[in-house]
């Protein structure tokens, strides 16, 4: 019996962890390629969830199509955010960019409250209440979907960054933006693609998680917080770090919640930040950057 509860908690943790990974990957991508810490990242998660809700409601499409539309729409917003905010600010000091991104976050949250209303909404998915039973383990189809889609997308992203021409240009920019520009890499294009990927990933996370909990316009601050914990745990700028960091955070939270108390689960995230910063400031997989 106890093993079943343990297995169930680990399963819960892995699914939650996969959403953290999707959120953190975009955050870490923007940092590693463009050296931008984007506080508005959580807002794209929120928009992903809300766009899914409205696509389903206004266009009358099914959940999967709505999620795809939302992801693409928010990815397109990523182009806009880059054009209007991050590209013009690229030569400014890191803090200026950081504060601007905080401003963008507030703008999007309050805009969301104005546009969508403060009432919580529920993204309807046919998979949300359907239960998959494996032995005594109980998981909803939606949660299986989160895990599987998350894994596939991350694999695809990994292949894209390793093998595609654009991926190589992104890695070159990450290593040395000026050097990359000198060898003919179109930095502007790299910026755009990076933001499209990051915002798309955040939106996908929102679209997938939407049906497991109620959504409201301030949910983005929760998402960006989880993203930062994962990124600090895994190392800023490391995608494998985000993967392992996210899944571990999910499982640690589930076990702490399951065996100590859910009331502690959140505190554990913060404790992790402090411990990692003291013991291994570059994160578990980070490359030390001394300036």
């Amino acid at each position: 019996m106890d093993y079943i509860v343990l297995a169930q908690q680990i399963a819960n943790g892995l699914v939650n962890g996969m959403t953290y990974v999707l959120i953190a990957t975009g955050l870490t991508l923007v940092f590693s390629v463009l050296h931008i810490i984007n506080f508005a990242h959580g807002e794209f998660y929120m928009l992903g969830a809300f766009f899914t809700y409205f696509a389903a409601k206004l266009l009358g499409v099914d959940y999967i199509s709505a999620a795809v539309i939302a992801t693409l729409a928010v990815a397109a917003l990523g182009v806009l955010a880059n054009r209007l905010f991050f590209w013009p600010l690229r030569k400014e000091h890191e803090f200026t960019i950081l504060l601007s991104s905080l401003g963008l976050a507030l703008l999007l949250t309050n805009g969301g409250e104005l546009l969508f209303g403060a009432d919580p909404k529920y993204v309807d998915s046919p998979f949300a209440d359907s239960i998959v039973q494996a032995g005594q383990l109980v998981v909803t189809q939606q949660r299986v979907l989160i895990f599987v889609v998350g894994a596939v997308i991350l694999l695809a992203l990994n292949l894209f960054i390793r093998h595609s021409r654009m991926g190589k240009m992104m890695r070159a920019t990450a290593q040395n933006p000026e050097g990359a520009a000198l060898t003919g890499v179109n930095i502007r294009q790299v910026y755009t693609v990076t933001f499209v990927l990051a915002c798309g990933l955040a939106a996908l996370a929102g679209a997938l998680v939407g049906p497991t909990a109620m959504i409201f316009p301030t949910v983005g601050s929760w998402a960006v917080l989880k993203g930062f914990i994962v990124v600090i745990l895994g190392g800023l700028g490391s995608i494998p770090g985000a993967l392992i960091g996210g899944l571990s955070l999910g499982v640690i939270e589930a076990l702490a919640g399951g065996y100590i108390s859910l009331g502690f689960a959140q505190a554990i995230g913060y404790a992790i930040i402090i411990i990692v910063l003291l013991w291994r400031p570059q994160g578990l997989f980070g490359i030390a950057r001394r300036t």
């Binding site: 509860v5 908690q9 819960n12 939650n16 909990a213 109620m214 949910v219 919640g257 009331g263 689960a265």
Partner: peptide, 16 residues
């Protein structure tokens, strides 16, 4: 089981 006012996932507590 206690939960906090920022929590969005309760499966852990409910599983318990």
């Amino acid at each position: 089981e206690f939960y906090n006012k920022e929590d969005t996932d309760f499966t852990t507590a409910l599983t318990k």
